[in-house]
Design a protein around this nucleic acid. Sequence first.
DNA 1: GTCTATAGGAAGATAGAC
DNA 2: GTCTATCTTCCTATAGAC
Lengths: 189, 189
Amino acid sequence: MGRKVAVEDAELMDRLGRVFRDVGYEGASLTLLAEASGLKKASLYHRFPGGKEQMAREVLETAGAWLDKHILSPLKGGGAPKDRIDDMVRQLDAFYSGGKQACLLNMLSSARIHDGPFTDLIRQTFDAWIEALTAVLTDAGVNRTIARKRAERGVMMLQGSLVFSRGVGTTRPFRSFLKSLPGDLLGTA
Amino acid sequence: MGRKVAVEDAELMDRLGRVFRDVGYEGASLTLLAEASGLKKASLYHRFPGGKEQMAREVLETAGAWLDKHILSPLKGGGAPKDRIDDMVRQLDAFYSGGKQACLLNMLSSARIHDGPFTDLIRQTFDAWIEALTAVLTDAGVNRTIARKRAERGVMMLQGSLVFSRGVGTTRPFRSFLKSLPGDLLGTA
DNA sequence: GTCTATAGGAAGATAGAC
DNA sequence: GTCTATCTTCCTATAGAC
């Protein structure tokens, strides 16, 4: 087992992820990442030989895995569609810290990497999210075409509410969005 | 009158703005800004003694003025509410190049400036936008509380559709959003 | 007003001791 | 695995000629 580890992998990813979410890829300096992680630069390079780019990629992959486990899988799993959606809303609230944390998919999609290695990962994550939401809505009896439209709108509203919340300096828009999301998706608004 | 000017102010702001929209504040290096503007670094400093921060601020102010002139004023002006909204949609399509250009309000809101000088400007721009949209909807006979909710949703969807479009690498979400915006706002969807 | 040249510092990344 | 010290490159910004 790995001994002499100052920070566990999960905790490390979480701390690095916070930096990337706060200031984006270009804004996340090694100094900032080192401070946030509690490790020195050289130690970060020991864990991520590929440097900042690898850190961002692994953070993105970790977030994708989290999304899959805590959001997408529960959406596909059993139970009433309404309950599954309510569960997603609770998880989203926690994941984005009630609207205080921006979304990695937004903050990393402008990374000026030579033909971005993140591009594919970001697109796949969006696609998977849309697909899972579409599935739960068809389970609820919604026509597939309509379901997909509502799923896309939901994901866009999530992104927009986070951008808007950050822009106006309050989490109200995000919280308000989360509240209306189940109704918007199921068409019971 | 100003002679010997290599690039006119309006054109200069446009070119600098494109860089900030593409790669954000931290990603916009002076080298990149110089290449895009057609001026050398030193020339940029002659026009913007405050450096990159001043460039971003003036670009943001210029965009705010454009928004006010081409979007907000027409919204307030005469004519049927539906026509005013349709007009806004056309202007938005042009301003964001059909979804290919990101929004400054999103790309600059994470600028790691000492307690951001952009923060206030961004919030004010969002507020003015919401207010103008709310006004045109009340003109259309919509209850003010409902109008404000729809205005906020519209602005959030705009931001979200741009983020999503960039993420999935196609402008379809943005164009689709623009198409449905008038109906969503007026409640005739 | 624009340029070439360069200063000064912060950035990403590495070497080698412990 | 983590650290201090260092290297190189890029960045922001300035000096001074034209």
